[in-house]
Design a protein around this nucleic acid. Structure first.
Length: 549
RNA sequence: GCGCCCGUAGCUCAGCGGAUCAGAGUAUUGGCCUCCGAAGCCAAGGGUCGUGGGUUCGAAUCCCGCCGGGCGCGCCA
């Protein structure tokens, strides 16, 4: 099996560097994919980086590096044309046509595995996302987390890691008490606004549904514990149904209540006290989180003897470490950003060897929903907010997932419901899916033997568009690797959009099912590679790749 | 007030130290179906990349100030 062209060029550059500037032989060599096709397939700015320390003209340096490269690794010329120096001192590499054809063959050979790295040093990684309180239906913010978290998990799996998707249930604490009181009041016939309606309450319609079902099951409204269990179970089921409709599956549901039941909260408090980083003040117990970068110390135990939320949170993250996850990613809204420093500080104070930056966070800005030119407020407490279920019903699961994941996490996000409702065709997901369906359609008419594609004479592919398509397909594994490293699945969405555009353009310009059999087979092989790459990318995003639309 | 994030075409957003990096979609305008799906293609117009400085051979991209917006600043979770 021929090794990766990129790796071979990098290696050749390294050898050239050892000849030309051995004292800088350890600098990072970065090969870029030029946007401009005329700049070749790979580009290195090595000469520009080294021109200052070496005090040499970057263009001249680039020239001598290019020469040294060919001299040190003559075999590289089987893979690429002689490197060219361009602009201020870039070294450009252009793959030979045969190398691009190899990409098509590789995709057909690897199939669904194309773009997936079989890493020998796989890590155990945990991705925690959604983690909604069981106090109401999932809202669009949870939808964004679901789409993001699931895609990030898939990306990491594609990089060879062993990934666990986890949902943390805050089923203990004040929010649940509030839910219980709300349902109880409703079950007793008290409505929002009536005398006797709790001051702090959930006013959503779903409270009424829960109360009604509770009574219908013959339960006693006075039994607060029974109400609590019923309401939590009810909402957990509803959330599970929504997640299933969204196509997101979790491996682990971790219950906050279990942290108390297993004594983990108590143990964390003791460990914090033992660390010597706590002190008593105003009847409360404080932790010196300022020693770990926090802007103020945090209360551990309130003066009434109960713990702040901070404690179970630290206890929970400690279990992640103890469960063997050395890389942990939490996907949350930016409204949680203050907890980042706090949780990390708490873990540091435990002094059990957890690194400073543990865990990683991907914070996304909240989703703003527009309807009728006005913002719909997203708030559990308001009771009227757009749910994940609403979005799925309106525009379909594929569109919601693709849309929510096609923006970088920290970018503000406006979901225009009216647009999604009226013009579903304009959603970019259809464009990508259509490209896939189009290829399938061509194959449906061809009726040939798919196995014959393996022997296609790919050197018949000489057109500019064909070379560009092959080049783009070849980028896919790098795009996946980078998206995984950056925890940025939106890069996949943009890549797929571009690949689909190139295919549509090709399809309109050239006929696939031509008379010339050899050419036809070669073009079909290229199309099959496009289809496979589209399917692989869509799969990472949790979006289907339909054969017909 | 302090902290974090954001400010790129009418709108929704990519690009976040390098060579056409001023982009995509959408919207607007004009072309393309006797031929593999027109949910498509081709083309045109549209932005001093919030603003003022600084670093650099080079800044949308890095640093500082300012303006505008979001989120967070509880012995709430």
């Amino acid at each position: 099996m021929a090794s990766d062209p990129k790796a071979r060029i990098e290696q050749a550059l390294r050898h050239a560097l050892q000849r030309e500037a051995p004292e800088h032989a350890d600098v990072a060599i970065v090969l870029e994919r030029p946007k401009q096709a005329s700049h070749g397939d790979f580009s290195s700015n090595l000469a520009l980086q080294l021109s200052k320390p070496l005090r040499k003209n970057p263009r001249e340096l680039a020239g001598s590096l290019a020469e040294a490269l060919v001299a040190a690794s003559p075999a590289i010329l089987e893979l690429v044309e002689p490197p060219e120096v361009a602009g201020p001192g870039f070294i450009n590499f252009r793959l030979k046509a045969g190398a691009k054809h190899d990409i098509v063959r590789r995709v057909l050979r690897e199939g669904a595995a194309f773009g997936r790295a079989a890493k020998p040093h796989a890590e155990r990684v945990q991705v925690e996302f959604v983690s909604a309180n069981p106090t109401g239906p999932l809202h669009v913010g949870h939808g964004r987390q679901g789409a993001l978290g699931d895609a990030i998990a898939s990306l990491l799996e594609a990089q060879g890691h062993e990934v666990v998707r986890e949902f943390y249930y805050n089923d203990a604490g004040a929010q649940i008490d509030k839910l219980t009181l709300s349902v109880q009041a409703r079950a007793r016939g008290v409505r929002p606004g009536d005398a006797g309606w709790p001051e702090e309450a959930y006013n959503g319609e779903y409270i009424e549904d829960i109360a009604r079902d509770y009574l219908a099951a013959g339960h006693d409204p006075a039994d607060r514990e029974a109400v609590r269990k019923f309401a939590v179970a009810y909402l957990r089921e509803e959330q599970d149904r929504d997640l299933q409709a969204f196509g997101v599956k979790f491996d682990v549901y971790y219950l906050e209540s279990s942290l108390y039941a297993e004594g983990r909260v108590e143990r964390v408090v003791k460990a914090l006290i033992a660390s010597g980083k706590t002190y008593e003040k105003d009847g409360a117990l404080w932790l010196r989180t300022t020693d770990y970068g926090d802007d103020k110390d945090r209360v551990v135990r309130k003066s009434d003897g109960t713990y702040t939320y901070f404690v179970p949170d630290v206890a929970y993250h400690l279990t992640k470490w103890e469960r063997g996850f050395r890389k942990v990613i939490n996907v949350q809204g930016t409204d949680h950003h203050s907890t980042v420093t706090r949780v990390r500080a708490g873990l540091q104070a435990l002094n059990v060897g957890i690194p400073e930056g543990y865990p990683d966070y991907v914070l996304h800005s909240l989703v703003k929903v527009m309807r009728g030119g006005q913002e719909v407020k997203i708030s559990k407490r308001a009771g009227s907010y757009v749910t994940v279920r609403d979005l799925i019903d309106w525009v379909g699961r594929d569109a919601v997932r693709f849309f929510l994941v096609s923006r970088k996490a920290d970018s503000d996000f406006v979901f225009d419901v009216d647009l999604a409702l009226q013009k579903t065709d304009e959603n970019p997901v259809y464009y990508v899916q259509y490209a896939h369906a189009r290829v399938c359609s061509v194959f449906a008419q061809w009726k040939g033997d798919p196995a014959s594609l393996a022997d296609a004479e790919l050197d018949r592919l000489t057109g500019e568009r064909e070379m560009a398509l092959a080049r783009r397909i070849g980028e896919y594994p790098d795009v996946v690797a980078e998206a995984a490293a950056e925890l940025a699945p939106h890069a996949i969405a943009f890549y797929l959009r571009d690949l689909a555009a190139q295919f549509h353009s090709y399809y309109n310009a050239e006929r696939i099912l031509v008379e010339d059999e050899a050419l036809r087979t070669a073009r079909l092989a290229l199309c099959a590679a496009v289809r496979q790459t589209l399917a692989n990318g869509l799969s990472l995003l949790g979006v289907s790749a339909p054969e017909k639309m």
